[in-house]
Amino acid sequence: MADALPSWAIKGELILNCNCTVFCPCVVSLGKHPPTEGYCQAWVGVRIDEGHHDGEDLSGLNVGLLMDIPGNMGRGNWKAAAFIDDRASEAAYDGLVRIFSGAGRGTTGLFGIMVSEFLGAERQPVTYTTEGRTRHLTVGKKIKGAVTPIGGKDPDQEVVVKNTEYWMGADVTIAQADRGRVRSHGRVWDFEGRSAEICQIDWAGP
């Protein structure tokens, strides 16, 4: 079919830090329970270990997101912005914008349904690094974040919520933000000490 959507896939890791004061209730309630503050503000980092869009390689690229949600996640009306790794080729950039705006459907097609205002996409130097168990995300001067898994009874094991129906991934590591500063799109946020999560992702579309 001439109008068939391009195929795409991404495998890697995602981190998220939001304004919830305890672990995000959206994970287990699938957006039915309101965020702890009544609304959700979050930044997201994605490390792409393997990926492609319409034959263009996406491996090794990183993406940052800003999300601003007025109430229960499941009710929609989200605002979102995407920051695409400035190392991406033009084809990779276009593909990642399609994926993270929801236009590519598949796993992230949810964005196309829930996001009422896409604030746009732009190239930024996006770095996603791991030191020990701590994940660091930097998006130019717009996002500076770091998240670390919380401690458990067995110090060698992460505290993980397993087998969920959470769209990002079934197994979610509970974490806390060591740093969570956002300065972009009129938002000035600081979520240090707030809820965070780490998730292995395996997404595809359409």
Rank of each mutant, 00 (worst) to 15 (best):
H33G: 05
A177C: 06
N77D: 15
K162A: 15
V182G: 04
D154V: 11
A177H: 05
A80L: 07
S101L: 00
N62F: 10
H53N: 00
G120K: 08
K142F: 10
F191Y: 12
T108D: 04
S195D: 15
D54N: 01
A92N: 03
S195V: 13
C18L: 11
V139L: 07
V126Y: 08
G106L: 03
Y93A: 03
V46Y: 13
G132S: 03
L5Y: 11
G31V: 15
V161S: 02
D57M: 07
W43D: 01
H53L: 02
V147P: 00
R179V: 02
A80N: 08
S59W: 06
R183Y: 00
V172N: 08
Y128V: 08
C199S: 11
I69M: 14
L16Y: 10
R75V: 05
D94H: 05
D178P: 04
E37P: 08
V28K: 14
R135K: 07
A9R: 13
V44F: 00
D171C: 04
F118Y: 15
G104D: 07
E13T: 15
V172S: 15
A170M: 09
I113K: 14
G112T: 09
W167G: 05
E37D: 12
P35C: 14
R133D: 15
Y166S: 00
A103D: 15
E13R: 15
I48N: 07
G193I: 06
V46M: 05
F191K: 06
R194V: 12
D94W: 00
A121P: 01
W167M: 12
D190G: 07
G169I: 07
V159T: 13
A146V: 09
G120E: 06
G132H: 00
Y39F: 09
V172W: 09
A204G: 12
E37C: 07
A170V: 08
V27N: 10
G45H: 14
C18H: 12
T173H: 11
G38K: 11
A4H: 08
T107V: 12
Y93W: 02
T173E: 01
C199H: 11
H53W: 12
L61F: 02
V182K: 07
A121S: 09
M114F: 13
L110Q: 13
V159Q: 11
T148Q: 12
Y39Q: 09
